[in-house]
Simulated assay, not measured.
Amino acid sequence: MKSLILVSHGDFSTELKKSAEMILGSQENIFTVSLLPHEGEKEFTEKFDAVADSLDGDYIVFSDLLGGTPCNTISKKIMNGANFDLYTGMNLPMIISFVNATLIGNPLSILEETKESIIKVNDLLDATNFDEEDE
């Protein structure tokens, strides 16, 4: 089974995993690596490597912020020949998409599904109110 590693500034990745588990139940194939305020790239890399090295098989990485230390550090691994997918802009719909695809055995469509989850609710409500007024 493919694994997912969430990387972030602070405990965002840990708390995001907890939120996903609140919705989806326990996720044994999702791991987190947090860059804490007192740490630098070296410490973060060591923690990431410990998680990645413990996994059997493929994994994907979701990062919180393009251009931030977690994403930049992981990007260097890809530039040095590591073979895994790295996505940035990590959010809860991305994790749900990953879990659903993994459970069903479908190909991952993280970008498409996540883009579709971004909706300005005001517009949705305006459209609903307009429809109700017509009836």
Rank of each mutant, 00 (worst) to 15 (best):
I30F: 14
L66C: 00
D134L: 14
H38V: 09
E112V: 09
K42V: 15
D49S: 06
M90N: 00
S8W: 03
E112R: 03
F98D: 07
I74A: 13
K17M: 08
S63R: 08
I118P: 06
D134W: 10
P70N: 03
D85K: 15
L55W: 02
N106C: 01
G89L: 04
L16D: 10
E116C: 03
E116M: 04
I78Y: 09
S54R: 02
E41M: 05
M94K: 15
S97K: 09
L36N: 15
K17G: 10
E113L: 01
M90Q: 01
E43W: 03
E135R: 12
D126I: 10
N91H: 12
T88I: 04
K42A: 14
E15N: 05
P37C: 00
S13T: 03
P107A: 12
T114I: 02
E135G: 14
Y87P: 08
I104R: 12
I78A: 00
G67F: 06
N80T: 03
E39L: 00
L86A: 10
I5R: 09
G89T: 00
L55E: 05
N72P: 04
A82S: 11
V61C: 07
E116G: 02
S13N: 02
T114M: 07
L125S: 05
L4C: 08
A20M: 11
T32A: 15
L86R: 11
C71I: 11
G68R: 04
T69V: 05
G68Q: 03
G81D: 02
G67S: 08
F48S: 05
F48W: 03
L36G: 11
D64M: 11
V121T: 01
A101F: 00
L86V: 13
S75W: 01
L86H: 11
G25W: 11
K77N: 05
L35S: 02
G105Q: 09
N72S: 07
L86Y: 12
D49V: 03
G105W: 05
G57S: 07
I78M: 07
